[in-house]
Write a protein that binds this DNA or RNA. Structure first.
Length: 459
DNA sequence: TGAAATGTTGGGGCG
DNA sequence: ACGCCCCAACATTTC
């Protein structure tokens, strides 16, 4: 009777799990293990909310496993030591895990592979990273040709079904499942595979057809809000792509494109790990950023005086999630208007986002900062007023997150400082008292950013 | 997956 | 009737 170990990292699901499938093929008893790696726990001490979501996900996975006649074993410690100990205790012949491409994960897995027989399986992305590359086998650094090559690959097929029975070895001692100190959002983002599929189905049923037109509207529920679930593999990328393919149409194509962006950034971080520390383009490392401690604090707290930016940051603080358009607007404001190093914004986002992930977060921030692969050109500066008018036309998004502006009518909502003192009184919102005055003048800030970038590029 | 600056055009007010 | 100016409205270019 052979036992195999399924080492769970960011694939908290039973359905469409290639590592689990490989573990089942390798033995008739599967031991599901999650290792609480002190190095990751320490790094995540400021990302407590995401850690809480992960822990809630572990409890959900354990419940699912128990329905299959198994259970989740949690142990704390260095993964190589924990796993080699478990191999000895259980007599397991092999360890299977889903490949993870972040620099730390690769170092860790290389170490683990020296201690135990480790086999990595695909699944984090739809297509294996090595499958999407140029004719000369070098990686793509521009999204459009990458996505063309991605789409040209044969579809990998139907997502694997979840096992109904998953026999495990006789009980081994483990830790209790960790509780979720920071996960106060259990009702907003219930963790687990079942919830991920509920969301996917609801999105496909009600919003995917309009996605092409509504995905940028911050005031509408036009997006899938699946990112935290994809982040921890409570749903697989293939399951999402499969659903898009079944749905078909312009909206599904636009959503598929976003999923391809996700894989593009996984690939970029894999092939160019330096992007987690500095700009992709060496020529753009000379930009002189401002320290601006006070303005940075205003940005993090959502008191910049620009309603869309403040709504975005407050949504993040309140929910652990932010609409993608809002992410771009808030990021552009920090990097261009405040001229603060994108890495500080990236770190703040990653601390607070439930979906916070090295690859996607760095990709997005470097895109905004204009320093990345296939990035927005440096002179593209978002105007928060125009972005607000365009993507929150009735101001519902701002009203939801910035209650001080409740009485301010639509024409002033995205630029409340334009109200006369009379109007401020009339609408019960005194600028500088009830709601902050803008901490920078956008027109001036824009010119300052262009100058700093020109100097940094060395033109 | 921008926005501002600059250029062009054409209608209308007006001397 | 005509030229002149103003300035939307739109197009192009520049950052």
């Amino acid at each position: 009777m052979a036992t195999t170990i399924w080492w769970i990292r960011r694939d908290l699901r039973l359905g469409d799990n290639q590592a689990l499938a490989a573990a089942r093929a390798g033995g008739d008893r599967v031991l599901p293990v999650f290792v609480l790696d002190p190095r990751l726990l320490a790094a995540a001490r400021d990302g407590r909310r995401r850690l809480g979501f992960l822990f809630a996900g572990l409890r959900a996975l354990d419940a699912d496993l128990r329905r299959c006649g198994n259970r989740l074993l949690v142990r704390r410690g260095d993964p190589a030591r924990v796993l080699s100990g478990l191999v000895a205790e259980s007599g397991a012949g092999a360890v299977y895990a889903e490949a993870d491409h972040s620099p730390y994960a690769r170092r860790r897995d290389a170490r683990v592979a020296q201690a135990v027989p480790l086999t990595l399986a695909g699944g984090l992305t739809v297509h294996p990273l090595e499958a999407v590359r140029k004719a000369d086998s070098s990686p793509y650094t521009v999204f459009t040709p990458y996505s063309r090559a991605w789409r040209a690959l044969p579809f990998p097929g139907v997502p694997l079904p979840a096992p109904e029975h998953l026999p495990g070895p006789a009980g081994l001692p483990g830790e209790g499942l960790p509780s979720s100190p920071g996960h106060a959002l259990a009702d907003l983002f219930p963790a687990g595979e079942a919830e991920a599929h509920r969301r996917l189905e609801a999105f496909v049923r009600t919003a995917i057809d309009d996605y092409h037109d509504t995905r940028n509207r911050m005031d509408l529920a036009g997006t899938s809000v699946l990112s935290p679930y994809l982040r921890f593999g409570m749903i697989s990328a293939l399951q999402a792509v499969w659903a898009a393919r079944q749905a078909g149409g312009q909206g599904a194509e636009a959503w598929l494109n976003e999923l391809i962006w996700r894989e593009f950034y996984v690939s970029i971080l894999h092939h160019f790990p330096h992007v987690q520390r500095e700009s992709f383009h060496p020529g753009l490392r000379g930009i002189v950023w401002r320290e601006a401690p006070g303005e940075f604090a205003d940005w993090t707290a959502g008191r910049t005086g620009y309603p869309v930016v403040d709504a975005a940051m407050r949504q993040l603080l309140a929910t652990g999630w932010m609409h993608n358009r809002a992410r771009m607007i808030a990021a552009s404001f920090l990097v261009k208007d405040l001229l603060v190093d994108w890495r500080r914004g990236e770190q703040f986002f990653r601390q607070h986002l439930l979906d916070g992930d090295l690859a996607a977060n760095h990709g997005g921030w470097q895109w905004t900062a204009g320093t990345g692969t296939d990035a927005a050109p440096y002179y593209r500066v978002f105007n928060p007023v125009l972005q607000g008018r365009k993507f929150d036309p009735q101001g519902d998004y701002v009203h939801r997150w910035v209650p001080e502006l409740a009485g301010v009518p639509g024409e002033f909502l995205h630029e409340p400082w334009c109200m006369s003192v009379e109007q401020q009184k009339q609408f019960h919102c005194m600028i500088g008292k009830d709601y902050p005055a803008p901490i920078v003048d956008h027109a001036l800030a824009r010119r300052r950013a262009l100058e700093a970038y020109r100097a940094g590029v060395g033109r």
